[in-house]
Computed example of a mutant assay.
Amino acid sequence: MYLPRWLRKSLVVLITTLTFGLVTPPASLLVDEAKADDSSFDAAVVSQRNTKAEYVRVLTREEFVQQTMEKAVVQSYEKFGGKILPVIEDEFNEVILPRIEEVLVSLAEQYPEEKLVHLAITEKPSGGIGEKIFHIYDKTSGKDIVRFHVRRDHPPQDGYWFNFHYHTYHDSFQTHYELGRIYWAKNTPPKWMS
């Protein structure tokens, strides 16, 4: 199908502009344009693609840790719910959160800064009696990197404890790396997110 040159150019510019360069115009529009040998148009397309690459933001390690910690606090408080949070909030903030931050700092040091932008925190903790607080995962592969959990322990004659720990992909999430424990009481704690 033959399109006038001005219409081909207009369509290419329109598609590129409306999609912010994320979608490449159909090859048929570009092939015909290449045959016309208009180097100024080719330079504009290359310039548009180079501009797109500049929008990828690199996170510093400090920014990654700060942003992830903010989200970790939100996810943790959501998990604890209105019944558990008031009882353990102070001890959680003083003991557990600094240890979570240490793990995140260590994780950030393992990755080049340009790859930190691909790490994300899960959105929803598990309720009921599930252990999941949040996971850190790679958005490009969808695979978990670190899993932060809390388990209810009930040693005989000792009441209930919340055991905060994490797992890593290095050993297929088998080893429990302890972050700390917080005592609840002798009575059974309510379900998470209640």
Rank of each mutant, 00 (worst) to 15 (best):
W6A: 15
L11V: 10
V12D: 11
V12I: 15
V13H: 12
V13T: 12
T16S: 05
L18Y: 00
T19A: 02
T19W: 00
F20L: 13
F20G: 13
F20S: 13
G21D: 01
G21C: 06
L22Y: 14
V23F: 05
T24A: 14
P25D: 06
L30Q: 10
L30C: 10
V31M: 12
V31H: 06
D32A: 15
A34K: 11
S39K: 15
D42Y: 10
D42I: 12
V45N: 10
Q48I: 14
K52M: 14
A53G: 11
Y55E: 00
V58Y: 05
L59P: 05
T60I: 06
R61Q: 11
R61H: 04
R61M: 05
E62W: 01
F64G: 02
V65Y: 06
K71N: 10
K71T: 08
V73H: 12
V73K: 14
V74M: 12
K79S: 06
F80H: 01
G82S: 11
G82N: 11
K83C: 00
P86W: 03
E89S: 13
E91H: 09
E91M: 06
E94M: 14
V95K: 14
I96V: 08
L97P: 00
P98W: 05
P98F: 01
I100N: 03
E101P: 03
L104C: 03
L107S: 05
Y111A: 01
Y111T: 03
L116V: 03
T122F: 02
E123R: 15
P125C: 06
G127H: 15
I129E: 09
I129V: 13
I129S: 11
K132E: 11
Y137C: 04
D138Q: 08
K139Y: 00
K139N: 09
S141C: 05
D144W: 10
V146F: 04
R147W: 07
H154P: 03
H154N: 09
P155M: 01
P156D: 00
Y160I: 11
F162A: 09
Y166E: 02
Y166K: 04
H167P: 07
T168Y: 01
T168E: 03
T168I: 01
H170M: 11
F173Y: 04
F173V: 03
Q174M: 11
Y177R: 15
Y177T: 14
L179F: 04
G180T: 02
P190K: 01
W192D: 03
